[in-house]
Design a protein around this nucleic acid. Structure first.
Length: 191
DNA sequence: AGCCGGATCGTCT
DNA sequence: GACGATCCGGCTC
């Protein structure tokens, strides 16, 4: 009844890709799980790193789609994005939370003993649990250590305002798997 | 359950 | 020199 998982078209608009990624399975060196929360960012988007044009930091986001854009957050965390749209556009999807499925022991080594629920619940935690660093910046998502398997079925999706931004707060480009206990924060009015 | 401050540093003004 | 696409611990209600 389910169609075979098809490849995700990263050249689509970031808000489309952000929805497609809900339910997809992401692993890094075999460690990962089901994506349950994403956020879309785009070039004409005041909340996006690319809003003010290309810089050394955001260069990867202006490169070809289907690559990893990794940035340092608050001087502490590494956050993982997938580049979208055509090369030169400057759009991407922030991976905010996954439901851990494989390599949970490795995640615990990296993050310490804590409930599975919290291992990848938020972009900083996810980055640490999956071992993401600046070395992953610019890497193709079709090549090791990355593996992205598209969802084989349509998952129920909720949406709402993005987290932790101060601009374009009215844009509802945060997406989540409806009812998931692994999202970083509840969605307004959802379920 | 919710608010507050500290940690920590690359990036851009 | 200021500011984060954040997390965590400690405190209060």
């Amino acid at each position: 009844m389910n169609a075979l998982p098809s490849e995700i078209d990263f050249s689509a608009p970031s808000e489309v890709v952000a929805r497609l990624l809900i339910g997809a399975v992401l692993t890094v060196d075999g460690v990962g799980g089901r994506i349950v929360e994403t956020e879309a960012y785009d070039r004409e988007d005041p909340a996006s790193h690319t809003f003010s044009g290309p810089t050394p930091r955001n260069a990867v986001m202006f490169g070809p789609p289907g690559h990893a854009y990794v940035y340092r957050s608050y001087g502490i965390h590494w956050c993982l994005n997938f580049v979208c749209r055509e090369a030169g556009h400057g759009a991407g999807v922030l991976i905010r939370a996954i439901e851990p499925l494989t390599g949970i022991d490795v995640m615990r080594e990296r993050r310490g003993l804590e409930p599975v629920k919290l291992l990848c619940s938020g972009p900083g935690r996810l980055g640490q649990a999956l071992g993401i660093t600046h070395r992953n910046n610019g890497m193709a998502l079709t090549q090791p250590p990355f593996q992205v398997e598209a969802a084989g079925e349509a998952f129920p999706i909720v949406s709402g305002p993005r987290i932790g931004i101060t601009k374009a707060m009215e844009v509802p480009w945060r997406f989540g798997l409806a009812g998931s206990k692994f999202v970083s924060k509840p969605f307004p009015k959802a379920q």
